[in-house]
Amino acid sequence: MKKGKQTAKQIILQAKNTSVKFGAFFAVKDFSFMVREGELHFLIGPNGAGKTTFLDLVCGKTRESEGSLILKEKHDLSKLKEFEIVRKGVGRKFQAPSVFGNLTVWENLELSMKQDKRLSHILRAKPNQEKDAEIKEMLALIGLSEQKDEQARLLSHGQKQWLEMGMVMMQKPSLLMLDEPIAGMTEEEEEKTGELLLKMKEKCAIIVVEHDMEFVRKYSEKVTVMHEGQLLCEGTMDDIQGNERVMEVYLGRKGDTADASTPAARSVV
């Protein structure tokens, strides 16, 4: 039940001059970025701009070549293993829905919830009432109460995406990263996802990578534009739309940027 205090919101993630280099290619180059408590922060940019690589960097899937990544002003993420980063409070939802298909929706949430996840503890874990209440609450939030005993592989694409968001939320992260959450969704599902985002940001800071500009316009507070691994500009959606360089990247030079960066980026994403 933490509500962001109005004054001096805590910095959740601070990236300073981070670079990721694959061979001679910079997927992320000298990129600095900050997210504060309670923020719903969109990360946009053309294909191959380095958005997903940046998320990978934060959650430990790839490692930085340079720069620093600090969580909640105290944890240096570059020194931690993936699962340790998660335990420090970073949640990641992947682009393609990845849920545990042969477990029920309930079991998916049960496994994901915040608890001692060391092997020795999991071997002795017992179900309890508190856990149940928490899972029920999450089921209601993501709208899957009716499907709780269904195997996750039988869910629709949209439902899987919500389930995965729910799973990540069960970890009670302080930072949630979503990679194109509405890709492949119907308009109706998109709207539901948007509402879900607004509810979730009450509980944690969120970074969303998104391509759908209409969606970004509707829900964004703060937008960061990346281009060729670098920061292009940052601000509200109106600021972004007024920015000439953004226009250039998205419209004018769209053709050649895609040619230059897409194949390399695809291979690393």
């Binding site: 899937k61 993936e82 699962f83 545990f100 298909g101 477990l103 496994l111 999991i122």
Partner: peptide
């Protein structure tokens, strides 16, 4: 037990489980 569910989860999506805070290799 919960441990058994974690095993099935490793089979279905080891990456997801690792990024849910489990040290799956152990």
């Amino acid at each position: 037990s919960l441990f058994g569910k974690a095993l099935i989860a490793i089979r279905d999506g080891e990456n997801r489980l690792r990024f849910s805070g489990y040290d799956t290799s152990m």
